[in-house]
Simulated scan of single mutants.
Amino acid sequence: MAGPYVLVVEDDEVIGTELAEALAAQGYEADWAATGGDALDRATGRAPDLILLDLGLPDVDGVTLCRRLRTVLRDTVIVVLTARTREFEVVVALDAGADDYLTKPFRLTELMARLRAHLRRRGAARAGERLLSSGRLTLDLAARRATYADTEIALRPKEFDLLARLVSSAGEVVTREDLIDQVWDVNWFGPTKTLDVHISALRRKLAQHGADPGNITTLRGRGYRYETG
């Protein structure tokens, strides 16, 4: 049986083929696209389980492509590969629909750990059938849909996972370490600032739908708490 299908979108032939070969060696079904147009054709022809997306493409801006992919691929995990290190550029990519990012150069072991974590959580989410609620906020874990006062909130997968983890322990402190371990992976290699970026985006989206962003309380040096009142 073939493993999860991963599409590598990378204009550098050496990097693209090496990544595809490394993924195949780990049991994944890997494909490689050198342009944004080719990637969009392949992804719409057959939805990948995960996309590794380089932002520096020759025919289209990677953020624009990410946004297009997300409109047609609701459940596919998108991990951005980027040499851009400024925080606002990363935020733009996440807002465009990416689930995670990895800064070049990166270690192959780190990349594989990220992929396993994302795909494991994707499978667990599909198997889930529970509902979570707090006040006017409801999370349908099976459908991966968040609503506030019966209006759906468009959340990226990691934002949904974070909110679900916080709401499942509403009124209790969830440490930064627990959030990273449970929402990303116990073998997380990346910066913890990734968590802060996602929490900030989550608060903003809640506020846009009438929820109090202060419901997610920061406890400095400890973690976060979702307030029930």
Results as ranks from 00 to 15, higher is better:
residue 181 D to S: 13
residue 170 A to H: 07
residue 74 R to M: 01
residue 40 L to E: 03
residue 203 R to S: 01
residue 144 R to L: 09
residue 124 A to G: 12
residue 4 P to N: 07
residue 170 A to Y: 03
residue 69 L to I: 03
residue 31 D to F: 08
residue 76 T to E: 04
residue 46 R to L: 06
residue 173 V to F: 12
residue 149 A to L: 11
residue 20 A to N: 00
residue 90 V to P: 05
residue 180 I to Y: 05
residue 43 A to V: 04
residue 165 R to T: 10
residue 164 A to Y: 01
residue 31 D to C: 10
residue 62 G to A: 05
residue 121 R to T: 05
residue 148 Y to Q: 02
residue 75 D to L: 12
residue 109 T to N: 13
residue 162 L to K: 07
residue 152 E to V: 14
residue 120 R to T: 13
residue 19 L to D: 00
residue 179 L to Y: 02
residue 118 H to P: 07
residue 112 M to G: 06
residue 1 M to W: 09
residue 174 V to L: 06
residue 127 A to L: 14
residue 18 E to V: 12
residue 71 T to R: 15
residue 32 W to K: 02
residue 80 V to M: 05
residue 16 G to N: 00
residue 16 G to Y: 01
residue 110 E to F: 11
residue 31 D to W: 10
residue 224 Y to D: 00
residue 158 K to V: 15
residue 151 T to A: 14
residue 174 V to E: 01
residue 57 L to I: 04
residue 229 G to I: 05
residue 43 A to R: 06
residue 88 F to G: 08
residue 20 A to G: 04
residue 119 L to D: 05
residue 99 D to C: 06
residue 109 T to Y: 10
residue 209 H to W: 03
residue 1 M to S: 12
residue 26 Q to A: 13
residue 158 K to Q: 11
residue 14 V to M: 12
residue 183 V to I: 03
residue 53 L to H: 08
residue 219 L to I: 15
residue 190 G to C: 07
residue 171 G to P: 11
residue 225 R to K: 14
residue 188 W to E: 02
residue 165 R to Y: 09
residue 186 V to S: 12
residue 229 G to P: 12
residue 55 L to W: 00
residue 202 L to F: 01
residue 119 L to K: 06
residue 200 S to F: 11
residue 167 V to W: 01
residue 113 A to P: 08
residue 120 R to Q: 13
residue 30 A to N: 02
residue 41 D to K: 13
residue 50 L to C: 09
residue 151 T to Q: 15
residue 38 D to N: 10
residue 29 E to R: 15
residue 75 D to Q: 13
residue 179 L to K: 04
residue 75 D to A: 14
residue 72 V to S: 14
residue 121 R to N: 13
